[in-house]
Amino acid sequence: MSLYLAITCIATSQAAKLDRSPEALEKGATIYHRACIFCHGIAGKGDGPAAFFASSYSAPRPKDFTRKDYKFRSTISGELPTDQDLFRTITNGIPGYMPPFEGLTETERWNVIAYIKTFSPAFQTEHVNTLITLEMPPRPATSDSIARGRMMYLELECHVCHGLDATGHGPVHTQGDLKDNTGLPIQPTNLTNLPSFKNGASPQDIARTILTGLDGAPMPSYASAFSSPDTSIWHMVNYVLSLSTATQP
């Protein structure tokens, strides 16, 4: 077992809902070619005909499905996402960059997930059996909790990228040092703008992002900074949530 003590490690079936039959894969391919190919490309390399325009000379570009590092996961850093992680991203989209595809039926979304997973052999050879689960209820956002969250924000040095004012202008970013794995400059999330959170804006989404990091981007996993059983992550979440509610009366 890894040293991620903050997380509960459970064995799970990666494909509880996933139909990998040839029929399902064929349906998934059809949907992929109608809906996904324009950004992600026919071979899933993230090089579709519209892939350049959304962010051009900055990150993020559309996901290259042939690579195994995924940003939006419930798994520890370096591991593949679960099917449920992929389903969540397709359903909700990525604020700013990928529209939600909840217009596809659930079956269609599972079919396209089955097809997407054929682009990387890692999905066949590596089994995801360690998940970060966040079953603890969020702590109430009391002023004490938010203040403790602010203290953690500083102690864990979140501000070096996100800035003391949390608007995404920390010193490492302003020095131009932040790049994603493809070498494109990347902007830390403005934590005062909740709707822009790419990995979701619910308390669980925020906690998951902090614990797992965003593989492929500079955002690291903070799992080792939280001990188990530890509810202090929710102080941090409450603080982050408070940054937006303060500016959105």
Partner: peptide, 29 residues
């Protein structure tokens, strides 16, 4: 921040250039 949001962009919470090369010209998507 890429937060320019006319109607469709507002609705889908994405930046204009998801659909445009640069407004007003459309990209393939």
């Amino acid at each position: 921040d890429a937060d320019a949001i006319p109607a469709f962009a507002r609705k889908y919470n994405v930046t204009c250039t998801v659909c445009h090369t640069r407004e007003p010209r459309l990209n393939t998507f």
